Amino acid sequence: MLRLDVILKEKGISNTEFAELIGVSVTSASAFKTGNIKPKFDTLVKIAEVLEVDIRQLFKPTKGGSLLNGFVEHENEVYRIYSIDDLENLLNIVKGNK
């Protein structure tokens, strides 16, 4: 249910480093990643803060579709897309530069 493995890879954070950052054992951090243990809400908040992501980005979609999350490069600038609003803002930038 959680996307920790993907986010940690994107950020280049090892499992050991992740465990240290959120203040849990390496075993617990691994269990969070595999879904064997579901972290409490306060731990999810800490994970989101430490990884500098919106808490919603920690979860995989549950009803089809996909999570809007990625990078777009336009005219030597890299934009992070977290939401439809981010995508619309980028589209306005692109249209304004035509």
Rank of each mutant, 00 (worst) to 15 (best):
R3P: 02
R3K: 14
V6G: 00
L8S: 06
E10N: 10
G12W: 13
G12N: 14
N15Y: 15
N15V: 14
N15M: 14
T16H: 11
T16D: 08
T16R: 12
T16Q: 13
A19V: 13
E20Q: 13
I22R: 02
S25P: 00
S28N: 00
S28C: 02
S30I: 05
S30H: 07
A31Y: 01
F32S: 04
G35C: 02
G35Q: 00
N36R: 13
N36K: 13
K38C: 02
D42S: 12
T43Q: 04
L44P: 03
K46H: 05
I47N: 03
I47Y: 04
A48N: 08
E49W: 02
E49T: 10
V50S: 04
L51T: 05
D54P: 05
R56N: 12
L58S: 04
K60I: 05
K60Q: 08
K60M: 04
K63D: 14
G64V: 11
G65Y: 03
S66G: 11
L67W: 09
L67T: 05
L68P: 04
L68Q: 03
N69T: 06
G70S: 07
F71V: 10
F71G: 03
V72C: 03
E73T: 11
H74W: 15
H74E: 10
E75D: 08
E75V: 02
V78C: 08
V78I: 15
Y79N: 03
I84W: 14
D86M: 07
D86K: 06
L87G: 06
L87C: 10
L87W: 11
L87Q: 07
E88C: 11
N89I: 09
N89G: 10
L90Y: 08
L91E: 14
L91M: 15
L91Y: 15
N92V: 01
N92T: 07
I93F: 03
I93C: 01
